[in-house]
Design a protein around this nucleic acid. Sequence first.
DNA 1: GCTTGGAGAATGGTATAACCAATTCTTGCC
DNA 2: GGCAAGAATTGGTTATACCATTCTCCAAGC
Lengths: 263, 263
Amino acid sequence: MRAVPARAASAKDDVTVKLIGIFKKLIAEGALLPGGRLPAERELAETFGVSRSSLRQALKVLEIMGVISQRVGDGTYLNSGAQRILGEPMEFLILLDGISFHELMEARLIVEPALAARAADRASDEDIADIRRELIAMQTGDPSRLTAHDLLFHQAIFRAAGNRVCGQMFAVVHRSLENMIRLTSQLVTPDHTLNLHRRIFEAIRKRKPEDARRRMEEHLLDAKSLLVRAMKDREQTDRQTQIAVLSKASRRGLTARSGRKRV
Amino acid sequence: MRAVPARAASAKDDVTVKLIGIFKKLIAEGALLPGGRLPAERELAETFGVSRSSLRQALKVLEIMGVISQRVGDGTYLNSGAQRILGEPMEFLILLDGISFHELMEARLIVEPALAARAADRASDEDIADIRRELIAMQTGDPSRLTAHDLLFHQAIFRAAGNRVCGQMFAVVHRSLENMIRLTSQLVTPDHTLNLHRRIFEAIRKRKPEDARRRMEEHLLDAKSLLVRAMKDREQTDRQTQIAVLSKASRRGLTARSGRKRV
DNA sequence: GCTTGGAGAATGGTATAACCAATTCTTGCC
DNA sequence: GGCAAGAATTGGTTATACCATTCTCCAAGC
C-alpha cells in the first residue's frame, strides 16, 4: 500500500465550489452589483485560472439558483432581486425528504398566523391597500385566476409583515401547493373562501393582531380539511412516465440495490 | 433581415435545465432511490444523448444543492436526506437582497414562538429529552460550544414541532446568524441565556403552548437587543479582501456601469 | 442628417477528445 | 485464505472547435 497522503481529505477541493465561493465574496464585497454585467466566460476563466468548462459549471449553478442570468450573444448579468432563488432547492427538498402536502400545509399553519399577527401590527396604508386589492380581485376577477389571487392575498400579507426571509420561503411553499389548492376550489363556493379572507383582512385593517392570527388559523385549518377531502376524491394521482428511454437505465443501475455500495 | 424563426424563443431550451427536470422526474417516480447509485457520467451522457460536459453541468447543480454526492473513482449517489439543501441558496438570498442580521432576527421572532407553541402541543417524550439534553450541554459542556448548543436547543424545538419544512429553513437562518450570536455571549453571563432557555423548556415540558410562545418571544427579543448592542460595540466589521487577483477584474468589468447594458 | 443593412466581432451553448487522480475490481502469487 | 500488484472504472479538469444568437459599428442609400 502506498503512503497515505498526510493532508486531510475532508475539505473538498472542488473547483466549482471554490468558484462559487469567489462569486459569493465578490457579491458580498460589492464588487459585483445587482444588474451588473460579468466579464465574458472566456475572460473569467482566464482570470481565475480555470478552464471554461469548469467555470461554466459554477455559472450554471448560480443561474439555476437564480443568482445570475445568461443570454447568448449578450452576456452574464447579476440578478437584482432573488425572486425564485429557493424554488428549485425547495422542490428537491420536497422530493427527497418525501414531504407531503400535509406537511406543507402544517408549515403554513405554523407560520402564516404569526405573519398575519405581525401584519396587523405594522402594515402600512399601502400594504393594506395591496391586500385589499387581492381581495377584490378574487371577488370580481377572472374565476380561473381565483387560486392565484388567493395565494397573492397571502403573499401581500407576508409583505405587510415586513420580512423578506419569510416571504421568500413561503412564496415557494405556495407555489408547490398551488395545484392542490386549485382542486379544493371545486368543493366550495368562491364566497366561502372569500369570506374567510375578508375576516383576516378586517382584523389586519383594524390592527388586531390576535384576531388576525386566529382568523388566519381558522382559514388554513379549513383549507387543510378541504384539501384532505379533495385528495381522497381523486385517490390515485396520474403517474407520468414520460422518459421512456430511462426505464432501461433505471432497471440496471439507477436504483439503490446496485453494486459498489459504500462500505 | 433574415426570416425570424417561427418557434417562440421564450421557453428556454437549456439542456442543463432539461436534464435537471429529468432527474427530478426520475426521483419523483421512484426510479432513483435515496442512497442509490447513478450510472457513470459517460453512460448517462450517452443515454440522454448529450455531451459529458453538459451532463456534468446538471450534476454539479444537483451536487451543490445537496441532492447528490459525487466521489472520484467511486460514483454518484443520490443523497438520502436533504440536509443542507437550502444552505447555499439562502446565503445568496441574504447577499442579493441585502438582508441584514436584523431582518433575520425578525424572521426568527415571527416563526420561532409559533414553533415553540407547536412543540408544547405535540412534543413526544423523546423530543423533550432531546431539548433537555441541549439545555444540559449548555450548562455543563464546553464553554466554547455554548453558542452551538444554544442553536441546537432551538433546532430541537423545531423537530419537536414536527415540521421539517420549517426546520430546514431555520436551520439555515441559524447558521447565518451563528457568528453574530456568538458575539452576544460576551455581553452576558451564561446563566442569563440559560435561564431564558430553561423557562422555554419548562413551558414545553408542561404542555403550555401560550407560555412557550411568550417565553420564546421574550428570549428572542432579549437576544435581539443584545445583538444590537454587540454590533454597536464593534461598529466597523472587518472587510476581507482576500481575492486580490480579482480587484483588477472588478475595476474593469464586474461592476454595473459596464457597457452593453440591456436596453 | 437620419435611417437602414450588413459584415464582423463577441458571447453563451454544446460536443469531442484527452489526460489525471482516486477508487474499486480483478488477478495471480504466496 | 490472504494479500499485493495491476487493470479497469469513475469523477475532475483542461483544451479546442464549432454553432446560433446578439451586439457593435460603419458605410451605403434616402
